[in-house]
Amino acid sequence: MSELINKVSQFFSSGIIDLFIGYKKGRLGEGKPAFFTKPEQLNELIFDENCIVNLAVYLRKPELKKYSKIGVLANFGTLRALLQLAAENQIADGQYLILTVADGKVLEFANLKAIEEYVANNLPKPNPERIAFLKEIESKSREERWEFWTRELASCIRCYACRAACPLCYCEQCLVECNQPQWVGVPPTGMGNLEWHIVRAMHLAGRCIGCGECEAACPMEIPIGFLTQKLNMAIISNFGQVPGTKLEPDYALSTFKVDDKENFIR
């Protein structure tokens, strides 16, 4: 850890950064997002497998506008979110100082391209437990699946914690807040909840980087991550587009390829 702390404090002292977003130890041993503005605070800085929060979510918050240069300690999900944000024109090369720790060594990324390479070489296999659960849902009949999801989604209280936690839900005005006209019902009732979750899943299809923050944030423990995961699996297998791995926009829902296998589209 000392290498990391030394490095970051050097960045502070040489004036390269004026804010560093990392983690410190939480009450239950979890890695808790922490904002360091002075090198003296850095003794609390940690990085381990409990540091799972996706820090990219903070980058587009207006509160950070006053800092001139921000350093981020990125876990794998954060790196992928950064790539997706770059593809969506939300962050620019050189805007942030990005660090990660791999095999106990601190890695500083020269640019976003370097992150793209790192991510390409380290893509993890899908978690077998999640795949097993998805398979289980898939094996149900249509009616059972409908029943499963309406039951699960009925408990949603529309706190939008899932949205707040998602690094890719950065719209300044979310569709659900659009009231002229109000396409999606606001009250947390059956229909409105379904509308909200269909919208959320569709808006993240082909963009979700699978960090799991939405599901982790949900106070009602609704397994909403499976909705986006399932959509993404379909996109990856049909179009070969893996969100959060490319700097260039590569969005299945808006692109058209001349060699599309469906002939009707040509």
Partner: peptide
């Protein structure tokens, strides 16, 4: 409200 994601461009 436009956030400039430019996914609409393509």
């Amino acid at each position: 409200t436009c956030v400039g994601c430019f996914l609409c461009q393509s």
